[in-house]
Design a protein around this nucleic acid. Structure first.
Lengths: 129, 129
DNA sequence: CTTCGTGCAAATTATTTGCATGGCA
DNA sequence: TGCCATGCAAATAATTTGCACGAAG
């Protein structure tokens, strides 16, 4: 599982690490972000590196109804997707861990990862009506 | 939004309604189930009907890391996917609604739907080690 | 009778793979 | 130097669409 450090990999991580890019991009958005800065990086490389980063637990792969999004943050939180404006918003709640613990005990599971996605209408879109 | 009742649509609903098929099938599993009983139904029709049923809230589309699964049940519950045996298990917990309500208030959201997916190792696979 | 849903095949989109080459360790 | 990661293009997989026709209302 030894992985090499290439300038392609470093550039992808660097771009995804920027605060302004903490937008849970899809693979296409990642391809666009990367290509905008370096047109020489092939998209197969981006696919391969993104999959590597997910395997190495640097990125989290978030399945949604609209396809996969990627999140570089790793602390336990959930996501809200507005069905009007399509924004993806991070939600934090102190009770997640409690619920997960309860479920672990109740069903005798070993829970490693949680994907909690809520769909609805966000505050702004609600106000606009 | 008027939809016709065709024998293809009826057959698909009938098959998915059977208890033994409450296995959160993927689109491919659905295509197999349907084709096994009626080879004359085209797969484009199955794709189209499944999407209709999701739109009409008869089926729930569940995004997971391994692609979409479909669930004919509609009551609030979450799913657990065992990363060893790949089983998808339904989990029920009375606190979901409470958490969702809290998040609604805290973030001023209008939450319409929740997708909660937990990944880990199930009891049986844990015991096998 | 009119219009929608269907089956088929082709088109499109998304993702993976084979291979020759250059770059990292 | 040896081997892995890359870029490119082609292959494959997943999903959607165009069209002529048959069936539902």
């Amino acid at each position: 599982m030894e992985k090499r450090n290439t300038k392609q990999k470093e550039k992808i991580i660097k771009i995804l690490s920027r605060k302004e890019n903490h937008i849970h991009p899809t693979i296409n958005e990642i391809i666009n972000l990367v290509s905008k800065e370096d047109k020489t990086i092939g998209q197969a490389t981006i696919y391969r590196q993104i999959n590597n980063l997910v395997q190495d637990n640097i990125l989290k792969k978030i399945p949604t109804k609209d396809g996969f999004h990627y999140d570089i943050k790793t602390d336990l939180h959930s996501h809200f997707i507005c069905q009007k404006c399509n924004r993806l918003i991070d939600l934090y709640d102190s009770n997640y861990q409690k619920i997960i613990n309860e479920l672990q005990n109740k069903y005798s599971l070993n829970i490693i990862e949680a994907n909690i996605i809520l769909y609805g209408i966000c505050e702004e879109c609600n106000d606009k009506v």
